[in-house]
């Protein structure tokens, strides 16, 4: 029985979640009895040293990875009870992704890359591309619509990735190390953009990072260590000086 009762403010709730990776006989526990909550309209950071399970937590809460045990409720959907096909459909409608390596399709233009989530949902190119161009304008680089990713700077690529994450108006945005490939100034620009677009529409934004330069953007910080959430604070943690 799930003791958790979702409220309209709750975006994600994980309860007693376990996850381990198996390589033959070797079993490596990554998440151990994790309890985690993120709210709508907030930017929640998950921080901690490398290998502590941040990215696995992010994968589990957005449904790209199944939990071994426990309950995962995202945007009111109990992912642990859904079939893979339903989870895939859920992701396509409700989750926006921002990756560390951007993961833009190199053979598509910026506008076409932004349109991908809409195309996955079955929206025709004729309708998706104009919407993608609108989002490109909102992230500040309308003139790059026809450029391929290899003609864009790192910051511009991440702006395209942000537009791609938002174009289908998802309620949840998950970001994996969104600034680690960017210089400090560009990183701040990207985070400003994320906070602005996230808060403006009451989305939940969950950011996995160990980039201390951007901790000040967090509304809520969950600190992880050794597969567990150590503490959740409403402000910047004291000394998150983790390194790769």
């Amino acid at each position: 029985m799930n003791p958790f009762t979702p409220s309209p403010e709750t975006a994600v709730h994980l309860s007693r979640v376990d996850k381990a990776f198996r390589h033959g006989d070797l079993v490596t526990p990554i998440l151990k009895q994790v309890e985690f909550t993120a709210r709508m309209g907030e930017m929640t950071f998950v921080v901690g040293p490398s290998g502590c399970g941040k990215t696995t937590l992010l994968s589990v809460l957005c449904g790209t990875l199944d939990a071994d045990a426990g309950e995962v409720t995202t945007l009111g959907h109990a992912l642990h009870q859904m079939s893979p096909a339903h989870i895939t459909r859920f992701r396509s409608r409700n989750v926006g992704f921002i990756f560390q390596q951007f993961n833009l399709l190199p053979t598509l233009t910026a506008a076409e890359n932004i349109a991908v989530p809409l195309r996955i949902q079955g929206v025709s190119a004729g309708k998706a591309i104009p919407r993608a161009r609108e989002w490109l304008a909102r992230v500040g680089i309308p003139e790059k619509a026809n450029e391929r990713p290899n003609r864009l700077s790192g910051g511009q690529q991440q702006r395209v990735a942000i537009a791609r994450a938002l174009v289908h108006e998802p309620a949840l945005i998950v970001c994996d190390e969104p600034t680690s490939a960017l210089d400090s100034a560009t990183g701040h620009q990207v985070m400003d953009l994320l906070r602005e677009t996230g808060r403006a529409s009451q989305r939940a934004v969950i950011v996995v990072t160990h980039d201390p330069r951007i901790y000040s953007y967090a509304d809520c910080v969950a600190q992880m260590e050794d597969g567990r959430i150590l503490r959740v604070t409403a402000s910047v943690p004291d000394a998150p000086h983790s390194t790769h």
Binding site: A85, T88, R93, Q101, N103, L105, P117, I120
Partner: peptide, 16 residues
């Protein structure tokens, strides 16, 4: 693989 993985993450089904 990575690009296809990104498409899957964004909700592209195996059938698509």
């Amino acid at each position: 693989t990575r690009q296809l993985g990104a498409l899957k993450a964004m909700g592209a089904s195996n059938l698509k």
